[in-house]
Amino acid sequence: MTRPPGSERATSTYRPPRDAFWFARTRNYTIFVLRELTSVLVAWTVVFLLLLVGALLNGTFQDFTALAARPWMIAVNVVALVATAFHAVTFLNLAPKATVVRLDGWRVPAWMIQGGNHSAWLALSVLIAYFILRSP
């Protein structure tokens, strides 16, 4: 007796098919995945900085600047800039959810913690840019 097509699986546990495009179904899912994918560009940025440091220490700085000026490299780094900035905004905004700060029983509101984080981000960025760009 031949089985009708598909019936050989009829008695096994039903498993709903995996939705391969779940991240495209709603806007929140998409933003979530984009936020998580910033980590790839964080890793890339570290590699890029290691290339810079290596070039400085090995005396191949000219080669590094030539590589950095290639159009595709600039394109990658523009994406990395957007991704790291997106990471910074989302990660710094998350802090009050991870840590509740209480002063004498008064709960410090989220906007103050977030504001403090973003101020620190701005201050550190200005400081770093100053040390890199100041004339010797």
Partner: peptide
């Protein structure tokens, strides 16, 4: 990463 990387990639990249 949030505090330090954006300015570095903005300048050098």
């Amino acid at each position: 990463a949030a505090l330090l990387l954006p300015v570095l990639v903005l300048l050098f990249g």
